[in-house]
């Protein structure tokens, strides 16, 4: 019986070990890493421009072939290259809106959890209500309201712009995050170091920013990953129903590409449906796996055993 590795591990090392032992998450990290490399190097990896045709007409709906690995769309553009540009926009939407919503949610959740009382009650009521309402309905209605308020235009940009979508999902995702952070803060609040800080008269702001938020990094990271997936899927859902960002200047997104799949079903141009959907699923699945492993890794309840 070998008894090596008996040194006691720090919490961070333990967390890292647990993360690495989640094989699907490690694979997902590699996939997302490769994908990021692909889209950052888009000018090199893409074979054609976003709006470029693979050949002179007739070029529409070509099946996958050497000239166009994943086939072409209705006006002869290369699906493979467009996917690279599309994923670029979608990941940007996902990340940017997740950062907005996690920042908002972490602050609201921390303040609600820390102050308790009326503010907490009202915040949680409101988030409950929003979360209970069908997501797509709220999304569409809020989208229209945001778009109809002229004084918001400088922030949100035009309704069909990528920026608008980012703001929309940024404003949307914070509720789930707020719940998670609030729960974490409620449990941290009773712990010694917070009590100690309070006893020596530290200000609320100090305690929240120095103690509560840093100690909630685990849950916040987890919330961030799930918000990214939420926004990417949300964007493609909106685009699918024709409410997504518009393809001005030939710019594209995963949602726009997936939306084109609707027509493909009737006509049998399977590649237009299968490949974008596959990419979307792989991205969503990978990020979900990473989030799951992060949660396992940072959840102190699992410190013992397995």
């Amino acid at each position: 019986m070998s008894k090596q590795e008996s040194t006691v591990l720090s919490p961070r090392q333990m967390a890292f070990r647990r993360f690495v032992s989640h094989k699907a998450a490690v694979a997902s990290c590699i996939i997302i890493g490769l994908l990021t490399l692909f889209i950052v190097l888009a000018p090199l990896t893409a074979r054609y421009g976003v709006n470029e045709s693979v050949q002179a007409p007739p070029n529409s709906f070509l099946t996958p072939r050497a000239k166009s690995w994943l086939g072409t769309d209705d006006i002869g553009r290369d699906l493979y290259s467009r996917l690279i540009y599309g994923v670029r926009v979608s990941l940007l939407i996902g990340l940017a809106s997740a950062i907005i919503s996690v920042t908002l949610g972490a602050l609201v959740g921390a303040v609600a959890g820390f102050r308790g009382g009326k503010f907490d009650d009202i915040m949680m009521r409101v988030t409950d209500l929003f979360l209970a309402f069908p997501f797509l309905v709220t999304l569409l209605v809020v989208r229209n309201v945001l778009g109809a308020l002229p004084w918001l235009r400088p922030i949100t940009g035009d309704m069909s712009s990528v920026r608008f979508i980012i703001v929309l999902f940024g404003l949307f995702g914070w509720m789930g995050v707020a719940r998670i952070v609030r729960g974490q803060v409620l449990s941290l609040k009773e712990r010694e170091f917070v009590e100690a800080a309070r006893a020596v008269g530290a200000s609320r702001r100090y305690i929240i920013t120095r103690h509560l938020l840093p100690n909630s990094v685990g849950p916040i990271m987890v919330a961030l990953t799930f918000s990214v997936v939420g926004a990417i899927i949300g964007e493609s859902t909106l685009a699918f129903f024709g409410y997504g960002p518009q393809a001005g200047d030939g710019a594209t997104s995963l949602g726009i590409l997936v939306g084109a799949a609707k027509g493909a079903v009737q006509t049998g141009y399977w590649w237009l449906a299968v490949f974008p959907c596959l990419v979307l699923i792989v991205i969503a699945l990978s990020i979900n796996f990473i989030g799951d492993a992060l949660r396992d890794a940072t959840d102190p309840r699992l410190d013992r055993g397995v």
């Binding site: 699907a24 997936v229 899927i233 493609s236 859902t237 699918f240 997936v258 799949a261 609707k262 493909a264 079903v265 009737q266 049998g268 399977w270 449906a273 299968v274 959907c277 979307l280 699923i281 969503a284 699945l285 979900n288 796996f289 799951d292």
Partner: peptide
């Protein structure tokens, strides 16, 4: 657990399209 993960990662409109493509069109 993995199947459940795949399940929640596939938005319903995609599975709907895939089913249509498979069970009806093809």
């Amino acid at each position: 657990n993995t199947s459940a993960f795949v399940g929640i990662s596939i938005p319903p409109f995609i599975s709907a399209i895939m089913f249509q493509l498979l069970f009806a069109v093809y």
